[in-house]
Amino acid sequence: MKFSIKDLVKLLVSLGLAAGLLWLFFQYSGIRIDEIVERFRQADYRFVLISAALAFVAHWSRSMRWRMLMEPVGYHPSAQNAVLAVMTGYFANTLVPRLGEVTRCGTLNRLEGVPVNVSFGTVVAERIIDVLMLLVLIGLTFLLEFNRLSEFFIGLFSDKLGGAGQNSNTTLMLLFAGGLVGLAIIAWVLFSRYKEVLRRKPFYQKVEKFVIGLLEGLTSVRKLKNPGGFLFHTVLIWTLYYLMSYVLFFAVPETSGLGILAGLTILVVGAIGMTTPTPGGTGSFQILVGSVLVLYGLESKDGGLLATFIWAVQTLTVLLYGGIAFVIVLLKAGNQPATRQGQPSTVGSKS
């Protein structure tokens, strides 16, 4: 896992954002550090271990699904190396947001010689599938918990829905979209006119090769050899994500009475919180999940404590598994000869 100056800047920015969000969280929830320590001391760690075991199965399932996406493009990484790459990617993403996908692909390239552009294309395809699954779950959650969630989101964004500012924001969005379309047209015209000249440039050839590999990985979804297995792992992954949080309700007496719909709401709201560019969704996860738990009858402080507990358990689990995987990758990479890069494996070569 290489770490550049650019990555350092990203880390510092994300840490600053996380610190600001955590300050807001503690300021408005009234939670003290000693209360968090006490919550951890009182927790039933049998449920923490169950959550950690479910997380491992989820990582394994994601790795198996990823291997399915690489089969159509001629690569067959071993199950062990795929699991190591996925866990190392999660480890990197927890430390530096948005670094996980690149690290995952780079790790697999180091262990198996799978070109980064091809594996990255499959990761993008995988992310698209996950976004669609999340949208389905959001729709299902709103259908089942419409009154609670509509109240939550209207309260959350009420200041941004004012009539005076709405027209202004709409105009700015339309101007921005029009500018993007105009730039795209200009870029296409220039490319059409000078494409023959560009194709003779080494930099263009490298970019073209990368894009071709990326598209090859993206289109792997429609060439799946086992679409049923792919669907099974997709459903399993999200079911495990749900259970990883839900079982932690029972680790704390104050929250053991929360129902299955509360778990579904936490899944979708927590997933939205995780999209914030902070390490492991730090700050945003606590704010969103802690706020939505109030709708299920918890006091604001109890909701914030449960959100912090869930976030901490899941983050520490990722760091534990990812740290072990990272060490194993270093050991494996140091004990093997350089792997051929850019060629499909002989076992799964393209026909």
Rank of each mutant, 00 (worst) to 15 (best):
K2G: 15
S4M: 03
S4P: 06
L8I: 13
L11I: 10
L12K: 05
V13M: 08
S14V: 15
G16M: 10
A19H: 09
G20L: 14
F26K: 09
Y28T: 15
Y28K: 13
S29W: 06
I33Y: 11
D34L: 09
D34I: 13
V37W: 10
R39P: 00
F40Q: 09
A43S: 14
D44N: 15
R46H: 02
F47A: 01
I50A: 10
H59C: 06
E71R: 13
P72C: 05
A82E: 00
V83R: 02
V83L: 12
L84P: 07
L84F: 09
L84K: 04
A85T: 06
V86R: 03
M87L: 14
T88N: 10
T88K: 02
G89Q: 10
N93S: 14
T94R: 00
L95Y: 08
P97H: 12
L99S: 15
V102N: 04
V102E: 02
R104L: 05
G106V: 08
L108S: 03
E112M: 01
P115R: 04
N117I: 02
S119P: 03
S119G: 07
S119D: 02
F120T: 12
G121S: 03
V123Q: 01
L137N: 10
L137H: 10
N147D: 15
E151N: 15
E151R: 15
L156F: 15
F157H: 11
K160W: 13
G163M: 10
A164W: 06
A164F: 10
A164P: 05
S168E: 12
G178Q: 04
L180M: 14
V181L: 14
A184T: 15
I185A: 13
S192H: 11
S192W: 04
V197L: 08
V197Q: 13
L198G: 09
K201R: 12
P202S: 07
Y204H: 07
Y204V: 14
Y204T: 13
Q205P: 08
E208Y: 12
I212R: 14
G213L: 08
G213Q: 07
E216N: 12
E216S: 12
G217R: 09
T219D: 04
T219R: 04
T219Q: 04
T219F: 06
K225F: 00
K225T: 11
P227C: 09
T234G: 01
I237Q: 01
W238A: 05
Y241F: 15
L243G: 03
M244Q: 14
A251H: 06
V252D: 08
E254A: 14
T255N: 05
T255M: 01
S256C: 01
G257T: 14
G257N: 12
A262Q: 04
G263R: 03
I266Q: 00
V268W: 00
G270Y: 02
A271I: 02
A271W: 00
M274Y: 03
M274K: 02
T275V: 15
T278E: 01
T282N: 01
G283E: 03
G283L: 05
Q286C: 05
L293G: 11
L295N: 13
S300N: 10
D302Q: 15
G303K: 11
G303Q: 11
G303H: 11
G304P: 13
F309V: 14
Q314S: 11
V318G: 07
G322Y: 10
G322D: 11
I324N: 02
I324M: 12
A325Q: 09
F326L: 12
F326I: 08
V327K: 07
I328T: 12
V329W: 07
A333K: 12
R340F: 00
P344A: 09
S351L: 07
